[in-house]
Amino acid sequence: MTFDEATNWMIALGIRQKKLDPYRDRIVTWLKEHPDLSSAQIEDWLKERFPSLEVGASTIRSYVSDIRDIYHIPKMIHPRMHEAVEELPMGQQVQVDWGEITGKNTENKDIKLYFITFCPLPLSVNMWSN
């Protein structure tokens, strides 16, 4: 490329339509309301609302990063507060795990299913030892 061709190419990169531009206002609103959102959470929210959207995680990461820079929305990090809990007698303590899985409904369409599991603690047998 000549210098002029390279310059025109660089300018074109900045003004071309991006795959996530139709969702820009929604993403900006989410980030302003929830500055601690990760690009993975933005991806989940987009795919929940727009199941036909086909976009890679790296594209979303890059787009969210650009939006944060353009609109000056820094990533807020709120560390979780953890502390040790005194061991309680059997039946007075439980471990809770959340999960999600994509399944099919009766019309064979993808749906996201959420679940929760409970495990009484302490276990009489160490389940992690095997």
Rank of each mutant, 00 (worst) to 15 (best):
Ser52Lys: 10
Leu121Gly: 04
Ile11Arg: 03
Leu88Pro: 13
Arg61Asn: 08
Arg24Lys: 14
Gln17His: 06
Val64Asn: 02
Trp45Ser: 13
Asn105Ala: 06
Met127Arg: 15
Phe115Tyr: 13
Thr7Asn: 14
Pro22Arg: 09
Tyr23Cys: 01
Ile27Asn: 11
Ser52His: 07
Ile70Cys: 04
Arg49Thr: 12
Val125Phe: 07
Glu5Pro: 07
Val96Gly: 10
Asn108Tyr: 01
Ile11Asp: 06
Ile101Tyr: 10
Asp21Trp: 07
Leu121Cys: 14
Phe115Cys: 06
Phe50Asp: 14
Ile73Tyr: 00
Thr7Ile: 12
Pro89Met: 05
Thr102Ile: 07
His78Cys: 10
Thr7Arg: 13
His78Arg: 12
Met81Lys: 07
Pro122Cys: 00
Asp25Leu: 15
Leu53Ile: 07
Gln17Tyr: 08
Arg61Leu: 02
Pro74Asp: 10
Asp36Glu: 00
Val64Glu: 01
Ile60Arg: 01
Tyr114Gly: 06
Gln95Tyr: 06
Leu88Ser: 13
Leu20Tyr: 00
Leu37Ser: 07
Lys47Ala: 09
Pro22Ala: 08
Met90Asn: 13
Ala84Gln: 12
Pro120Tyr: 14
Phe115Thr: 01
Lys32Trp: 02
Ser124Gln: 07
Pro79Thr: 08
Leu13Val: 12
Gln17Leu: 10
Met1Phe: 15
Asp97Met: 01
Gly103Tyr: 06
Ser62Ala: 13
Pro74Ile: 08
Asp36Gly: 03
Ser38Tyr: 05
Pro35Gly: 09
Leu113Gly: 08
Leu121His: 10
Leu37Phe: 04
Cys119Ala: 12
Thr2Val: 08
Met10Arg: 05
Pro22Phe: 05
Lys112Ser: 11
Ile42Leu: 00
Ala6Ser: 14
Tyr114Arg: 00
Ile67Gly: 09
Gly91Val: 07
Gly99Leu: 02
Met1Ser: 15
Lys104Glu: 11
Met127Trp: 12
Gly99Ile: 08
Trp45Leu: 15
His72Ile: 10
Glu54Ile: 12
Asn130Leu: 14
Lys19Ser: 11
Leu31Ser: 02
Asp44Phe: 11
Asp97Arg: 01
Ile70Gln: 05
Thr2Gly: 09
Leu123Cys: 06
Asp69Lys: 06
Asn130Glu: 12
Thr2Asp: 03
Asp110His: 09
Leu88Glu: 10
Leu13Met: 15
Ser124Asp: 12
Glu43His: 09
Ala12Trp: 01
Ser129Cys: 09
Val28His: 01
Tyr114Ala: 06
Cys119Asn: 12
Val125Gly: 10
Lys104Ala: 11
Glu83Gly: 03
Trp98Gly: 04
Leu31Arg: 07
Pro89His: 02
Arg16Pro: 03
His78Met: 10
Phe118Cys: 08
Gly14Tyr: 11
Ser62Leu: 09
Arg61Cys: 04
Arg61Trp: 01
Val125Arg: 12
Asp97Gly: 05
Ile15Asp: 02
Ile42Asp: 00
Asp21Pro: 07
